[in-house]
Amino acid sequence: MSTNALYTDLSGYYDLMCCDINYQQQSNSVARLHQILGNSGKQHLDLACGTGPHVRHFIDLGFHSSGLDINQPMLDIAMRRCPEAQFSLQNMTEFYVEQKLDLITCFLYSIHYSQGIEALKACIASVHNALNAGGLFCFNSVDKHKINNKALVRHSADFEDSQFVFESGWHYSGVGEMQALNLSIAKTQFNATQQWQDSHSMVATSFTELQALLAPYFDVQIFEHDYDRIIPWDLASGNALFVCTKRER
């Protein structure tokens, strides 16, 4: 199955796959960070927005919110969820906006969808160009050196007379600039089980390398991956929230 085939074929199940994610909590936390460290403006864009749950919450928080993604079936669902928002089929590594923005978000580790370091650099430059003065770029990331290749996240859910089991896990070989997000979905209905397996190639960086890429464009602060509290990164954990305030070049 090709890199995005699973997401395309099962886009209708994406929200079910992510049903354990507290989108409201994440959105509220980043909105608070924007009040503290950003320019408090209300023009918002969500990169790799998927089916639009974060966009929905930012609209409810009073933002003029929009989203972009490379997957049209996802965007179709997002447009139904948020008919008042603007969505565009674009690659986040080279995107264009007509109006400058105050807040750009990229949740669920989607920053890693950049295909290599050069693409990640292009994404960072595109974000900087799209932001107003004092605008904020918020995203979460995983440090390639802290990845446990044996660790998996697993949850199950029932939907339309079927039971679904979802598994995901990072894998990094220890060398190079690419890592993988391995996904597995099992759907059981009437004692028959269908299975999908997919491996998404994603850019791998350490937090030190990522800070160096961001430094020419942003003042960077790193926080613990905790959407309940605003806590500085402990310098040890492998997941973190990057909060980047635009610096004029």
Rank of each mutant, 00 (worst) to 15 (best):
E209D: 15
D228A: 00
L33A: 09
Q163I: 12
E209K: 10
F166V: 14
I70L: 14
Q72Y: 08
Q179I: 09
H44P: 00
C49Y: 07
N129S: 15
I147D: 01
A130H: 11
N39D: 07
G50P: 14
H44C: 05
W196E: 09
L10Y: 14
W196K: 04
Q99F: 11
Y23G: 03
A31M: 01
I104C: 03
T193Q: 05
Q195F: 09
I222K: 06
K100H: 09
S40F: 00
Q194R: 05
L33Q: 10
H112Q: 08
C138D: 07
R56A: 15
G52N: 03
F207W: 08
L33I: 04
T93V: 09
N91D: 15
L33E: 06
Q25A: 12
R249P: 15
A85S: 15
I59W: 02
M202C: 06
F164V: 12
L6I: 10
G41V: 08
L10C: 13
L89F: 10
D20T: 14
R229Q: 13
L131N: 00
L45E: 03
E98I: 06
Y217T: 04
D46M: 09
S173K: 04
E160V: 07
G238I: 04
S110L: 02
E224I: 01
K42N: 01
S206W: 02
A31K: 00
A78Q: 10
S237V: 05
G62M: 02
N149K: 01
D9H: 14
Q43W: 00
L213I: 05
T51M: 04
L152C: 14
A122K: 04
Q72N: 12
F218I: 03
D60Q: 13
I70T: 15
S2V: 05
Q35W: 00
L33C: 12
T208W: 11
S11N: 10
E224V: 06
L89D: 11
G169C: 12
K121P: 00
H171F: 02
G12Q: 13
L61P: 04
Q25F: 00
L68V: 13
L241H: 01
P53E: 14
M17R: 03
I147W: 03
G12S: 12
Q72F: 03
L37H: 09
A151V: 00
A157T: 05
H44S: 03
G12V: 06
A192S: 08
P232N: 05
S199E: 06
D60G: 11
L103P: 02
Q99N: 13
D9R: 14
I111N: 01
F166N: 09
G12E: 11
H112V: 04
A130G: 04
D161V: 03
H145Q: 00
T208P: 07
M1F: 03
V175T: 15
T205Q: 04
A180G: 07
D76T: 12
N4S: 07
E160L: 13
N71C: 13
D198Y: 01
T3W: 13
N148H: 11
L16C: 10
L45H: 10
D158A: 12
I117D: 02
C18L: 15
F107E: 02
I104L: 07
K246A: 15
Q194T: 08
H44A: 04
S126C: 10
A48L: 06
